[in-house]
Computed example of a mutant assay.
Amino acid sequence: MSNWVEASVKEIVWWTDSLFSLIVNADVGPFKAGQFTKLSMMMDEKRIARAYSYVNAPSSPDLEFYLINVADGLLSQQLAKLKPGDTVMIESRASGFFTIDEIPASEQLFMLSTGTAIGPFLSILDQPDVWQQFKHITLVHGVRLNADLSYQAKIAQLQQQYPQLAYLPVVSREQAIVGLDGRITDRIADGTLFNHCNSTVSPQSTQFMICGNPQMVKDTSALLIKQGYTRNRRREPGQITVEQYW
């Protein structure tokens, strides 16, 4: 059963002409960093709802979501028109198992994301408990264009707070100003992603969280499985934990 509550729009931050963050205030239930909820609006007497991950830390009173305004997106087109003071409906109960309490402790953690799927990782990194589980964390963000690398100030603040955090942009459609060119999968396949981070990775020392579009999640998982890693399951802990982003 969905439990919809009203959320008041506090702010909309436009990063590019299609990427934006929606910040709302609402009385929602507690959630774990990495979980998602649903936003909805009524259209022609029908409720249109979509799942979005929380970007904010669970302790924050501002609820933040990172979205792409999809050209034919029924809901994103409407959300993109919201102004401060408008209301949107939010599901008060969060869902999902893309949380660090589902992941075995390890020497290092690679967070592999594409596009707006960096959102849940920012929520997780905003929590001190992630650093009790991993000594080193590398946040990898795959995007098409350098301009799509949102949240730079937030990432810089997290790196100041936690010097053990490395950040690696991977840009596929133009030369990267910082980081690597190409796709995350290509850079894992040819070894440059780990070399660039000066990381020695192995199933004994490394965990991977993968969040992105279904094809990226599938391809990246397949590559890592070929390299000797296994999917993390409750009964059989492995090294690969995934979240499909639509």
Rank of each mutant, 00 (worst) to 15 (best):
A176D: 09
T99A: 01
N195C: 11
Q215G: 09
V217R: 05
P169S: 01
D126N: 13
R144T: 11
L224G: 08
G182E: 01
D101A: 01
R183G: 00
G212L: 04
L122W: 04
A222D: 12
P128N: 12
I118C: 01
P128M: 11
S221N: 00
L125D: 07
S205D: 09
V143E: 04
Q108W: 07
G119H: 01
I155F: 07
V201M: 14
V130R: 04
Q132I: 02
I118T: 04
I155T: 07
Q160L: 12
Y167P: 05
P128S: 12
T99E: 00
V140G: 02
L224A: 12
A147L: 09
R233W: 05
Y167S: 07
V143T: 07
K226V: 04
L193A: 13
Q152Y: 08
T138H: 10
P214R: 00
N198H: 14
L165Y: 03
N213Y: 14
F98W: 02
L122A: 03
Q204N: 13
R183H: 10
E102H: 04
A156P: 00
I100A: 01
R231G: 06
D186Q: 11
F208E: 13
I137D: 09
Q207E: 14
D148P: 00
I188F: 05
L122D: 06
T200F: 12
G142K: 03
A166Q: 14
Q175Y: 06
G119P: 09
A156K: 11
N232D: 15
A94R: 11
W131C: 09
F208Y: 15
V143P: 03
S150C: 15
Y151N: 14
L168N: 06
M209F: 10
E107G: 13
G96Q: 04
G182R: 00
D190S: 06
D101T: 02
A156L: 13
Q132L: 11
L149S: 03
I188R: 08
E174V: 11
N146P: 06
N232S: 08
N195I: 07
S202N: 09
D186H: 06
F208N: 11
M111C: 04
F98E: 03
H196W: 10
Y162C: 08
A105W: 00
D186S: 10
D219Q: 15
R231M: 14
D181E: 12
M111L: 13
P169W: 00
S221P: 00
I177A: 14
Y151L: 11
A105C: 07
S221E: 09
Q157F: 03
V130I: 15
Q159Y: 05
N195A: 15
A105H: 03
M216H: 10
Q127R: 10
F194A: 15
S205M: 01
Q127C: 12
T230I: 10
G191H: 07
P214C: 02
Q132R: 12
M209P: 01
